[in-house]
């Protein structure tokens, strides 16, 4: 059974970058979301066992998504991939239960290490 994975980022280039960085032999079914609302829809319809989440997005930002998931005790594994790398952003993301905070531009190796740590690959 492929693992349902959602990539939430308003930038097409960044969504592509995540796709490219995923291990080629990892059996996944990918859903793309362009904003936080779409990301939550994906989670609620069971399409996001793993969620790659950008922070700066229209409609609902990444913090909003994390807050919702946190309040609803969702089991989704969230890996934040952000251009906002200030200590304050990291602190907030950690407090809202994200598994990892990765900086953009995304390094494929770092992403694979992270997936390995979660036990996903």
């Amino acid at each position: 059974m492929p693992i349902p994975v959602t990539i939430a980022d308003d930038s097409l280039m960044s969504r592509k970058a995540v796709r490219r960085a995923l291990p080629p032999d990892w059996d996944v079914e990918i859903t793309e979301a362009c904003n936080g609302k779409e990301a939550l829809l994906a989670v609620e319809s069971g399409k996001a066992e793993v969620l790659f989440l950008d922070l700066t997005m229209p409609e609902l930002d990444g913090f909003g998504v994390l807050k919702y998931l946190h309040e609803h005790h969702t089991k989704t594994v969230v890996i934040v991939i952000s251009a906002d790398i200030q200590p304050e952003a990291k602190r907030l993301v950690d407090s809202l239960g994200a598994f990892r905070f990765l900086h953009k531009p995304l390094q494929a190796e770092q992403l694979r290490d992270t997936l390995f740590e979660v036990g996903l690959i």
């Binding site: 930038s11 280039m13 700066t56 251009a83 953009k104």
Partner: peptide, 16 residues
Amino acid sequence: DALQELMNISMGRAAN
């Protein structure tokens, strides 16, 4: 889109 995202990333560093 690509240019904007590249700017976002570099400006994120500058802001940091």
